[in-house]
Each structure stands twice: as structure tokens, then as C-alpha cells.
Design a protein around this nucleic acid. Sequence first.
DNA 1: ACTACGTCCTGCGAGC
DNA 2: TGCTCGCAGGACGTAG
Length: 263
Amino acid sequence: MPELPEVESIRRQLDPWLAGHQVLSSNSHASAKFAPAEEIVGMTIESVKRRGKYLLFDLDDNREMVIHLGMTGQLIPVKDLSDPYLRAWWEIDDGTFLGFRDVRRFGRIRIAVNGVYEGTLAQLGPEPLSDAFTPEHLYAACKRSTRKIKTQLLSQKPVAGVGNIYADEACFRSGIYPGLRKITKDQARRLHDEIRNVLLVALGNGGTTLRDYVNAEGKKGQNQEFLLCYGRWNEPCLICGTVLQRTVLDGRGTTYCRNCQSR
DNA sequence: ACTACGTCCTGCGAGC
DNA sequence: TGCTCGCAGGACGTAG
């Protein structure tokens, strides 16, 4: 599932490819989730930005195309427009085609006008790698809610861009049980530090490819080799050797160490 | 306003 | 071997 490191890896490749180029034509899957793709025909992509897990294609005419990759979304150059999983494509004025491939169709495309956003994007917490994201901010944000700490992270409100993989990793590395509904200031500081740490390392490794993720060159990431917790249930904790547990928290599969992660 | 849970979607792995 | 069934999950809709 593409989270901040994966989406940022894609952005870094899309921007030099697409910036300054005009969209000549487009097509999209019948679903309303993808139909807005066609609204940008004739517009010029000025840059490709990112907020949390959202890609923002900055267009002329005060518009932005907002793309969320969902679970299995890929943005890749395509030659075969008959790929059955291609949900949208755009013809670029350099002769290439950008494709949005999304097997499970959890992704979505929207057009925002004058920077006005809706839904989760409008309520996104600070960028985790920016100065706005501090331990104090995380502590205060988590204190406002009684929900489980992992559920709060996945809500994108205390901080933007963290999904299931990096939430489990950050909780593990900071020694915090993800089902906690209250954390101390010290726990918030550790969680803050480890959120940054796991995202930065993953970015450096080109993202995590468990199944579908590829960057905008169609290449897999390497960070799956470095995960300490996510997906390792029934395997020994790399810190203490205890067999890692798997549970479901608010409908999300969660791996943790019952010894290292305090409850 | 907030929390919890169902829904979307399809490939895949487990189990018979 | 071949089939059915349930699972995976981010954001959003809805109920309480």
C-alpha cells in the first residue's frame, strides 16, 4: 500500500517528466472515481507535488488534479493502452503516455479548484518530515481523541502520510502498543522520532514493495528487506526473540511484540 | 462532534 | 487438481 515514502518516490520521478508539459488527450474507466482524469485535457502540468499520500498535479487555470493511489494504484509510463487494469491514461505532449493502473480500484482522482480541498485531504495533519511536526504537536493531537493510537495515526490527522506498514513499524520501534488510547509525553516523543525515522529510511530505500508497489519507472522498492515488524507475525522479535503477535485493531491487521511494546 | 463499523474491489491463499 | 470462501486495506459513508 503506497504510503508517504512510496508516493514521494513516485512524485520525484513524475515531476521532472511532466512539469511544463501539456496533456493532449485522456481516457478513464467508467467509474466516477476515475472520470475526473479527463477534465485536464488541454491543460499544462506545472509541477507534481505531494501532501501526505496524495499526489497534487499543479495545473494552469488554478486547478489541481488530486490522485490517491489507494491500495494498488500505480502511476507509470504505458505503451499498451488495452491493459485491463488501466483506470486512466493521459497523453503527454512529449509523445509519452502516463497511466494510472489500479487492480483493486481503491484509488481515486479528483479536480480541486483554487486549492480548495475536500475530505481527508482538507484535514490532513502536518508533513512528518517538516518542522511543523514536533513531539509536542503529536502529543497534543493524540490527547484530543480517545481512539487507539494506531487508529489515530491512520486517520491522517495527527500526522500525514502514515499507513498500516509504517504505523506498525513506528509503534514497534518506539515500544508502544498500538492499541493504547493514551500515551505519555515521553511516548509521544519516541513515536514522533520513530515515525520520522521509518519514513526517512523507507524513502532512502525507494519504498516498500510487498506486492503491487512500483515507482514511476515501474521498479520495485527495497524497504521490505528492512521491516522489523510489519508482516512478521509468528516470527521472533528481532529485539527480544518473543514470537510476534497478530491482532486486528479497528479492522486493521496489526503486528506487535507483546514483550517490547508496553500496554 | 466524535467513535465504530460497514463498504468498496479483486487477486490470492487456505481449506475442502 | 479444482473449486469456494474469506482476507487484505485507505478513505469515506453512515449509524449511534
